[in-house]
Amino acid sequence: MRSRRLHALLLATPGLAWLVIFMIIPCLIVFFYSFFERGTYGGIDYVFTLGNFARALEPIYLTIFLDSARIAGIATVIALLLAYPAAYAITLAPPGRQSRYLLLVMLPFWSNYLIRTYAWIVLLNREGLINRGLGGLGVIDEPISLLYNEFAVIVGLIYNYLPFVILSIYASLQRLNPEIREASEDLGAPAWRTFLRVTLPLTLPGVAAGGVFMFVLSIGNFITPDLLGGGRVHMVGTLVYDQFLSARDWPFGAALSMTLIAIMLLLLFLQAVLVNRAQRDRGTAHA
């Protein structure tokens, strides 16, 4: 028993060490910086202050937190609505084909994130393919503004993270024992009821995992709002980026990051509580 535990510990050590060195320690450094003042030339004056946190909660910045959550939330809901049918369709394919379809889902990752984002600029801009196409077909007279607004940012976020959501839902659908569905149908439930009462509840963990993943990646993203939002759509990610790299106000950037991390941890904690409760309920129901 003891040697088994020792083995487990040994196996986990490299991973844990990686996390501690590249995740926990940097986070602590950021946490530490958030309590000091910005130096005249962008360094850090070691004078203790809570002012950075007070500033992060000023209405102008608080609005950005709320906007980011709204944008990430919309992107997450749309991504889930797109991903679920796609994942379902893949599971319906013959097993041999499924891996090919999954490969297609993963295919965009073979090219660089930046290049894919720039491709959207080519598509969406006022003189871009979509506007030219619609103009050529006579659908629109004047080019429509598709780029440098929230719409473009949401499109970019969904495009970039959709594969993760599809994969996570696919994994939970795939694990579902087909006999359960068959049992429901044998007992006379129509297909829609089987889906709503059996398939969907049993695959909710996959939906939740994909959704949380999508939301967390979206709310902290800075490249997509910067490029597709044209600097006019600000999200927490761009705000933090600007503080570190343009304003050179590391302490304020650190305080913003810490606030974001605190919100994320709270959300992840809530998700864990909900999943736990759901599992416990299911456990008692079966008993």
């Binding site: 102008i60 950005i64 600007d242 304003a247």
Partner: peptide
């Protein structure tokens, strides 16, 4: 420069 950085942050955030 501090006031500049703050003003620009607020312009960008507004």
């Amino acid at each position: 420069q501090r006031a500049y950085a703050r003003a620009v942050s607020e312009i960008m955030a507004a």
